Amino acid sequence: MSDIRLETEALVVDIAPQGGLLWRVLAKMDGREVPLLRQPPEGEERDPLHAASFPLVPFGNRVRGNRFSFEGRDHELEPNMSWDRHYLHGDGWTRHWEVVERRADLVRLRLGAHRAPGTPYVYEAEQSIRVEGHMLETSLSLTNRGAEALPYGLGWHPYFPLTPGTLLRAAATDCWDEDSQWLPTVRKPVSGDMVFSTAAPLPRRWVNTLFEGWNGGAVIDWAESGLHLEIDADPLFGRYLIFVSDPAFDPGYTYDFFCFEPMSHSADAHHHADGGGLKRLAPGESLAGRVRMRWGR
């Protein structure tokens, strides 16, 4: 199925049902179309790792050892990427979403009830993408359709352009160190180049860091284009993850994009004594959250 386009006088959004992707998001400015999220490659391929953004369901990030215990039962996860030993980001980003509603300003997608391969998770999900003027709103929900309660979470994985003049403001209280498996180890107060309580540049080094204590508000400024993007996330998303790659890890990477990922839960939250933000959903119970992005000058 071809992409679905939503368009206003100030925005262009292309949506790919395969993966439930935001494939392309552009701001209309001074007769030009300027990328608000990372510009994807041309062509027919819809690789989620090249998209502007993809959804994280039934949870995001990784689980140490691909196993966890919940309410007296042990569960295992099978890796879903050839290049990662862990089950990564759920399965919503790898599946086809059905278009269940299409209007001039909104597209609603549904991922029908299914068992996520290699997991105990049986669920269905829905997302809606809505545009209005300079605003893009993404809503994501899921419902436990399995026979047992499990911990669930939501998130988004957007990629943003990174330029020499890019500044980020997103206040947080703490962040996590990580180990060689890209899993969190020690929680500590934000410090140094990890402080974004006021507008600050992104480090030009490997960053794969989960931040705690976020109030859901963030601002990205691009000095070169004069673009200003405000992010407003529901209280469910009390954490975010920043990813900046490294040429040693990703040959050809030139510090041209970064990820700012609103998350309902911590990385490896399945092993946090307090659940790390994951929500216990009994059969039939649901979880939902919304993120808005609005651009200006």
Rank of each mutant, 00 (worst) to 15 (best):
M1N: 09
S2V: 05
I4Q: 01
R5W: 09
L6K: 03
L6Q: 03
E7I: 04
L11V: 05
I15E: 01
A16E: 11
A16H: 06
Q18E: 15
G19D: 02
G20S: 06
W23H: 03
A27D: 07
E33F: 00
R38P: 03
Q39L: 15
P41Y: 04
R46T: 09
R46G: 08
R46D: 10
R46A: 04
R46L: 07
P48N: 00
S53V: 01
V57C: 05
P58E: 07
F59E: 03
N61Q: 14
R62C: 07
V63R: 00
S69C: 13
D74Q: 12
D74R: 13
D74T: 14
P79G: 03
N80I: 06
D84A: 10
R85P: 14
R85H: 08
R85W: 06
H86V: 04
H89K: 01
H89Y: 06
H89V: 09
G92N: 04
G92I: 02
V99W: 06
E101G: 07
D105P: 08
L106P: 11
L106V: 14
V107I: 12
V107E: 03
L109V: 12
L111Y: 09
G112L: 11
H114G: 05
H114I: 11
R115Y: 04
A116F: 01
P120L: 10
V122T: 14
E124Q: 13
E126G: 11
I129D: 02
E132Y: 03
E132R: 13
T138Q: 15
S139K: 11
N144S: 07
R145A: 09
R145K: 14
E148N: 05
E148R: 12
L150F: 02
Y152A: 04
L154A: 02
P164I: 04
R169L: 04
A170D: 10
A171S: 13
A171E: 14
A172K: 00
T173E: 15
D174F: 06
C175M: 14
C175I: 04
W176N: 03
Q181N: 12
Q181V: 10
P184A: 08
T185E: 12
T185P: 08
K188C: 07
K188S: 12
V190C: 01
M194W: 13
V195R: 14
F196T: 01
T198Y: 10
P203Y: 02
V207P: 03
N208R: 10
F211M: 09
G213V: 11
N215K: 12
N215Q: 14
N215I: 05
A218F: 03
A218E: 05
V219R: 13
D221M: 00
W222N: 06
A223M: 11
H228Y: 08
I231C: 06
I231Q: 11
D232P: 01
A233K: 02
L236A: 00
R239Y: 00
D246Q: 12
D250K: 12
D250N: 11
D250R: 12
G252A: 09
Y255P: 03
F260S: 00
M263H: 09
H265N: 09
H265G: 07
A267L: 13
D268W: 08
D268F: 07
H270I: 10
H271D: 01
H272T: 09
D274Y: 03
G275S: 08
G277V: 09
L278C: 03
R280S: 12
A282P: 10
P283A: 05
E285K: 06
E285D: 13
S286K: 11
L287F: 04
A288C: 10
G289T: 05
R290A: 05
R290E: 12
V291P: 01
V291R: 00
R297H: 12
